[in-house]
Amino acid sequence: MHEWSLAQAIVESVVEAANNKKAKRVKTLEVEVGSLAMLDKDIILEAIKTLSESTKLEGAEIKIYEEETKFRCKKCGKTWSFNEEKEEIEKRWEDSKIKDEYGTDDLPIHYFPELIFTMTSCPSCKSKDFEIIGSREITIKSVTIEV
C-alpha cells in the first residue's frame, strides 16, 4: 500500500515540469496503472487530488485508468493475461504476502512487478522465457498545460 508515496512523486514531478514550462496551470493529467502491480486506482486518484491542492495541478482534469497486463511466451508464442491467473497466484503465494500498517496484505509484485517471473510461467509450455506486454506498474501517460 504505497499508493500515497507514488501519488506524491507524480504530483511533484508534474508540478515541476509545469513550472519549467512556465505554465499557468495543468489542464489534464492521465495516469495509466497496469493490473500487475495491483495498485488501488481510487486511492491514487484521491491522493493526487489531495496532494495537488494549492499547486498548479489543482483543478486539473485527472484521469486514471487500469490497463490489463498481458504476457507473451517467447518460446511457444502463447499469450495470456495476468487477470486470468491472479486468483491462483494469490493462493499459491499467500505465505509471501506483505502486511502493512493498514492491515492490507499485498503480494510482492505490488512493490516489485518484475517478480512475476518468479511467480508464474507460460501456461502452455511452462517456460519462464516470457515477456510482459503493456503497462506493469504506473506511468504518467499525458499532461497538458495552459501557458
Binding site: 509471501s96 516489485f112 512487478p113 518484475e114 517478480l115 517471473f117 518468479t118 519462464k128 510482459i132 506498474e137
Partner: peptide, 16 residues
Amino acid sequence: LSKDEPIPIKGRYKEE
C-alpha cells in the same frame, strides 16, 4: 520474497 524459486529477471526488466 521469492521463497527458494528462481528469479529469472532479464534485460530491461532488470533495470526496472
